[in-house]
Simulated scan of single mutants.
Amino acid sequence: MPSSSSNNRAKIQLISKAALIRLGVFLSILIVICVWVWFTLFWMPGKSYSGQLKPLSQQEISLRNLLQEDLKNLADEIGERNANNYKRLNAAVDFLKTGFSQAGYEVKEQEYKINGKSYYNIAAEKIGIKKPNEIIVVGGHYDSVFGSPGANDNGTGAAATLELARMFAQQKTNRTIRFVEFTNEEPPFFWTEDMGSLVFAKQLKAQNENVVAMLSLETMGYFSDRVDSQKYPFPIGLFYPNQGSFIAFVGNLKSGDLVRKAIASFRRNAEFPSEGAVLPSGVPGVGWSDHWSFWQQGYPAIMVTDTAPYRYVYYHKEEDTSDKIDFDKLTRVVSGLAKVISNLAE
């Protein structure tokens, strides 16, 4: 008959074996979760460009000059443009409408009212040849936050939208592209029913429009090679550079495929650093622009950005002026985005 000590040793061995099995199962689950997180949230196709930037081509120099002219018109001449500066906001409307018209577009205005005043989303449409009912929306908001001329936020996005529309004016694409300048993205309208892009996206949904991709161009013109110039909400920074020298492609989980398609195209066609992330929409900053409005209507949408407050020290300040913008690098980004849009439109 076995002794009690032998029984105890056997029990200990069984308990140890069970503990090892549980530990093995736990570690296996943890590994699966880590792999899923990496490939779902952080892995991006292609490789971010590194090394010396080549001189701008003659075509890019022309684009740079146009972007600079647009931005100076919006930020320097018109200046702060929002509900508190209603005349200047409408001056921006006139400027952007004229730009679309001169490029050959029939400009469409979406008017809506807040407290008896009219506000306008402005759209220029390039009808697709083979798939006209499949729509790509490219847009940026043209209003600025109270107390700021809004050169980077979001004169860069508004100017980029205008110049991209000009670039596609004579091109043929299979899918339809709508270039939209949104109003009232900034507080007090941010994430409310009066946010211009939400008004626009709701109308698209009500009309059963098939939006296959939306690109929100938001705060795109500030870059720094300084170590620790780039910040992130914890723990995102564990996976990305600490120098703010790249352009970012950001989407929520449902827009993951669009993020990867866009950044893959950008990396194939643009010699400029890029990073991408697919993150839960609740992570601070992930939904802080007009793409959020399209998420609310179930459309795939991403933000293209220099990461705004996580890099730009003049974010939402009076000092957000055109002299802070790196126009050469903004030009490289916009040139790359033209290729991205062309690929998506096919």
Rank of each mutant, 00 (worst) to 15 (best):
P233L: 04
L89M: 13
P280S: 04
G251T: 01
N84H: 14
S5T: 11
S28G: 12
L238A: 13
P300L: 08
N152F: 01
Q243R: 12
E193M: 04
A151C: 08
I61F: 10
F239N: 08
Q102L: 13
F100T: 07
T98P: 06
I21M: 12
G287F: 03
R178V: 11
T183W: 02
P2H: 04
G251M: 02
F249V: 07
K231G: 14
I114W: 01
I12D: 15
E125M: 09
I325D: 11
A264I: 12
G237N: 07
T40I: 15
S229V: 03
P149H: 06
D290K: 03
D320C: 06
V304Y: 02
Q203M: 15
A159T: 14
V278Q: 00
E69P: 02
A213N: 11
A19N: 06
D326Y: 10
G155F: 02
S6Q: 14
F246S: 14
S216I: 01
N73C: 12
F272K: 00
D290G: 00
E218R: 15
T183R: 01
N65K: 15
A201Y: 03
S197P: 10
V138Y: 06
D328G: 03
H141C: 14
N8K: 14
I247T: 01
T161G: 05
Q297C: 14
F168D: 02
I263P: 00
G244K: 00
K126L: 12
A103L: 06
I33A: 13
K329A: 11
W36V: 12
L164G: 04
V340D: 10
F42G: 00
A83T: 11
V333M: 05
P187A: 08
T307W: 02
F190G: 04
W295A: 01
E109V: 10
E209F: 04
L344Q: 07
G157N: 05
F294I: 10
Y310K: 09
Q110T: 07
I21W: 12
R226H: 13
A83W: 07
A92R: 02
Y49D: 07
F294E: 03
H291C: 09
V180A: 12
K131W: 12
L71G: 08
F179S: 07
D320P: 11
A158E: 01
R311M: 05
Q102D: 10
A308H: 02
A10L: 14
R332V: 07
N269H: 15
Y240M: 11
I247C: 02
M303I: 10
G104W: 09
S118Q: 03
S62W: 08
K324A: 09
P241Y: 06
M167K: 08
P132I: 00
P309I: 00
V278I: 08
Q171T: 06
E77A: 14
A262R: 08
T307N: 01
F266E: 03
F100K: 05
Q296Y: 15
K54Y: 11
K324D: 04
A338F: 00
A201D: 11
Q110C: 10
I177H: 11
